[in-house]
């Protein structure tokens, strides 16, 4: 960090904010604040330059057209890529996982180049994956389980440089087996919910990557209760 305030960039919320992705930035901001670490959310809108000086970048999901525009904007204004190259933390959700890869192919069979931040390719699956997801951590990356809601047609294949975030227990994720991707300090997932309110351990992992500070857990009873409820609901999707 260049100074004591953690700067969270909310990237193109006007294009990639379809699924409450603002919530991920809010959770990071509050979890920092509640531990006495100063932070701020910087919204980077369509048409504006992308700063390369932020500590954490949050990129959300969006519709197909919006996703194409977002890639073009991020390529023309490569602040996010410069920041990632120097080790800034990046969270990519849903469309995020697709546009960060080498390329992605839509349902109309047109292939678009991605930003090349993670070793992956995405393509349109035969059916839309919709519903509650439950997954177990891959490579001991985090504690407990991963919970979220998926709504996507894309499927993603990871190359050797990228690791999966989790192994799918219920739902589809990248391909029915693994969910998400981690490469350096870039973490991607298909899960909404949004993902960080439902998975505080992932939020804290991102904060620890950004600050180097080992955090003590926060006790938020509503979050504990929500995780239990959603895990149970995912079990019911599995039985259905």
């Amino acid at each position: 960090m260049s100074d004591s305030t953690v700067r969270i960039a909310l990237v193109l919320p006007d294009l990639l904010g379809t699924y409450g992705d603002f919530g991920n930035a809010v959770v990071l901001d509050k979890r920092l604040a509640w531990r006495g670490i100063s932070s701020e959310i910087i919204s980077v809108n369509f048409g504006e330059a992308v700063p390369d000086s932020c500590d954490i970048y949050v990129v959300g999901g969006g519709e197909d057209t919006a996703q194409t525009l977002a890639v073009r904007h991020l390529r023309d204004n490569p602040g996010l890529q410069r920041a990632a190259a120097r080790g800034a933390v990046v969270l990519g959700v849903c469309a995020g996982i697709q546009i960060f890869g080498e390329k992605f192919t839509r349902a109309d069979d047109v292939t678009h180049p991605g930003l090349g931040l993670i070793d992956s390719v995405s393509y349109a699956g035969g059916s839309r994956a919709i519903g509650e997801v439950l997954a177990k951590p891959a490579n001991g990356l985090f504690e407990g389980f991963l919970t979220g809601f998926e709504n996507h047609q894309g499927r993603t294949e990871l190359g050797p440089a990228a690791q999966p975030l989790a192994h799918v227990t219920v739902g589809t994720g990248n391909d029915g087996k693994v969910e998400g991707a981690v490469q350096g300090k870039i973490l991607c997932t298909y899960l909404h919910g949004p993902v960080l309110p439902r998975n505080p351990q992932i939020a804290d992992l991102l904060i620890e990557w950004a600050t180097g500070v080992k955090l003590s857990p926060l006790d938020l009873p509503a979050v504990t209760r929500l995780r239990a409820e959603r895990s149970k609901a995912a079990g019911q999707r599995a039985d259905a």
């Binding site: 904010g17 699924y19 409450g20 992705d21 603002f22 919530g23 809010v26 919709i130 519903g131 809601f149 709504n151 909404h192 919910g193 949004p194 309110p197």
Partner: peptide, 9 residues
């Protein structure tokens, strides 16, 4: 709608 992500909007 089963996805409550919108609560954050």
């Amino acid at each position: 709608g089963r996805d409550l992500s919108w609560l954050w909007d």
